[in-house]
Simulated scan of single mutants.
Amino acid sequence: MECRLGCGACCIAPSINNPIPGMPNGKPAGVRCVNLDDDNLCRLFGKPERPALCAAFQPCESVCGDSRIEALALISAMEIDTRC
């Protein structure tokens, strides 16, 4: 599966516990990453400073669903299920 252009769900729904460019304390779940532009495209995509966690994310139907709305819901549910 290819990324849905302009989706950005993986840059909004999950938490990131490590520092990322522009967010030294990481990113809480449900908070838009500061590196996501107005078109929901990552400003760091393809750049060496892009976090390894973000670069490792691979889109798939079970995570991304059939739409941006479904992707936000699926990733948010996974975030809730994996909280300690």
Rank of each mutant, 00 (worst) to 15 (best):
C3R: 10
C3K: 09
R4A: 10
R4V: 02
R4H: 05
L5T: 11
L5D: 13
G6D: 13
C7V: 06
C7A: 02
G8T: 05
A9P: 09
C10I: 10
C10S: 07
C10D: 09
C10H: 07
I12W: 00
I12C: 04
I12V: 14
A13S: 14
A13W: 05
A13I: 10
A13F: 10
P14R: 12
S15Q: 11
S15A: 15
N17H: 15
N18L: 15
N18Y: 14
N18M: 14
P19H: 07
I20Y: 08
I20W: 04
I20F: 09
P21C: 09
P21I: 05
G22E: 12
G22M: 13
M23L: 13
P24C: 13
P24R: 15
P24Q: 14
G26L: 02
G26A: 04
G26W: 00
P28F: 05
P28A: 13
G30S: 07
G30F: 07
V31D: 07
R32N: 06
R32S: 04
C33N: 04
D37I: 01
D38V: 02
D39H: 06
N40T: 01
N40Y: 00
L41K: 10
L41G: 01
L41Q: 11
L41C: 09
C42E: 09
C42M: 10
R43M: 08
F45A: 11
F45V: 10
F45Q: 11
G46Y: 06
K47R: 15
P48W: 02
P48T: 08
R50E: 15
R50I: 06
R50P: 00
P51H: 06
P51W: 00
P51N: 09
P51D: 04
A52I: 11
A52S: 12
L53Y: 10
C54Y: 03
C54G: 05
A55T: 11
F57G: 02
F57C: 06
F57Y: 14
F57T: 06
F57M: 12
Q58I: 15
Q58G: 08
Q58N: 14
P59W: 07
P59D: 08
C60F: 08
C60M: 11
V63S: 13
C64L: 12
C64N: 14
C64Y: 06
G65I: 07
G65S: 08
D66G: 12
D66K: 11
S67T: 12
S67M: 07
R68W: 06
R68Q: 14
R68C: 10
R68L: 03
I69C: 05
I69Y: 05
E70M: 05
L72Y: 01
L72R: 01
L72V: 02
A73G: 02
A73I: 05
L74W: 00
L74A: 03
S76W: 05
A77F: 00
A77L: 04
M78S: 14
E79P: 03
E79F: 01
E79C: 01
I80C: 00
D81R: 08
T82W: 03
C84P: 11
